Amino acid sequence: MVELDNVDRGILHELQLDARNRSAQEIADKVDVSASTVRNRIEQLEADGIIEGYHPKIDYERANLPLQVLFVCSAPPTERSEMVEQVLGVRGIVDVRETLTGRRNMYVEAVGTGTADTVRITNALHEMGLSIESSEILSQRRVQPFNHFFFTDPYNDGEDDRDE
């Protein structure tokens, strides 16, 4: 576990808003530190594994993959973690989420062009030993940056971080 201060949290928030188009100087202006501090902090956040990567948000419908399906599955608890990589290997699967306990412990999001893709993916999941509890056609997904841990000024922790 890495202890984050308000500067780190502010940098993470700004990157979540738009990592591709935010310069170090723009982030620095928001969190009230120097651009070099922002670059150093981002490098450290990456080294610590807090920032795992930068991923594009894809509109699958515009990319000619109009069918998005969420499969809610049950996997044997002792095999669930090992199954994730196998599930991700199925063409069309774009996201896998594990829950900690009980049935309905794996959520699998898939994209495709039609029913044939859904059937192929369903069959592949069954062949792996997953039990599909439900499948839902998704119409839209929205996410937002996590910034709910601030109770006061989000970027000022009272310290002068400009010399880092």
Rank of each mutant, 00 (worst) to 15 (best):
residue 151 F to K: 05
residue 109 E to S: 12
residue 88 L to E: 09
residue 90 V to L: 01
residue 144 Q to N: 03
residue 147 N to Q: 11
residue 112 G to Q: 03
residue 80 R to Q: 13
residue 160 D to C: 01
residue 125 L to H: 10
residue 143 V to N: 08
residue 148 H to R: 05
residue 78 T to E: 15
residue 116 A to L: 12
residue 121 I to V: 14
residue 111 V to Q: 07
residue 118 T to I: 15
residue 43 E to M: 05
residue 117 D to Q: 08
residue 64 N to C: 04
residue 154 P to D: 00
residue 55 H to S: 08
residue 108 V to R: 10
residue 35 A to Y: 08
residue 14 E to W: 00
residue 22 R to T: 15
residue 56 P to E: 13
residue 107 Y to M: 04
residue 52 E to A: 00
residue 51 I to Q: 03
residue 55 H to P: 04
residue 39 R to T: 11
residue 5 D to I: 08
residue 115 T to F: 12
residue 94 V to E: 13
residue 69 V to K: 14
residue 39 R to E: 11
residue 162 R to L: 03
residue 29 D to M: 06
residue 74 S to C: 14
residue 85 E to G: 15
residue 37 T to G: 15
residue 153 D to K: 03
residue 28 A to G: 02
residue 82 E to V: 05
residue 64 N to H: 10
residue 124 A to I: 00
residue 141 R to V: 14
residue 63 A to E: 03
residue 137 I to H: 15
residue 141 R to M: 07
residue 12 L to A: 02
residue 150 F to W: 14
residue 76 P to V: 09
residue 3 E to L: 03
residue 52 E to T: 15
residue 98 E to Y: 07
residue 48 D to Y: 15
residue 96 V to W: 02
residue 28 A to C: 00
residue 158 G to I: 13
residue 65 L to T: 11
residue 151 F to I: 08
residue 93 I to E: 00
residue 124 A to H: 01
residue 124 A to W: 00
residue 155 Y to A: 10
residue 156 N to S: 04
residue 85 E to Q: 05
residue 117 D to I: 15
residue 78 T to N: 13
residue 14 E to H: 08
residue 19 A to F: 06
residue 71 F to A: 13
residue 44 Q to M: 06
residue 106 M to Y: 13
residue 56 P to I: 06
residue 7 V to P: 03
residue 87 V to D: 05
residue 94 V to Y: 09
residue 57 K to M: 00
residue 32 D to E: 10
residue 148 H to G: 14
residue 129 G to P: 07
residue 22 R to H: 12
residue 63 A to T: 02
residue 147 N to C: 01
residue 72 V to I: 14
residue 76 P to F: 07
residue 129 G to R: 08
residue 94 V to L: 06
residue 125 L to K: 11
residue 131 S to F: 06
residue 115 T to R: 15
residue 70 L to D: 03
residue 54 Y to R: 01
residue 31 V to C: 12
residue 156 N to Y: 01
residue 123 N to P: 03
residue 3 E to K: 06
residue 115 T to L: 13
residue 162 R to C: 09
residue 85 E to Y: 05
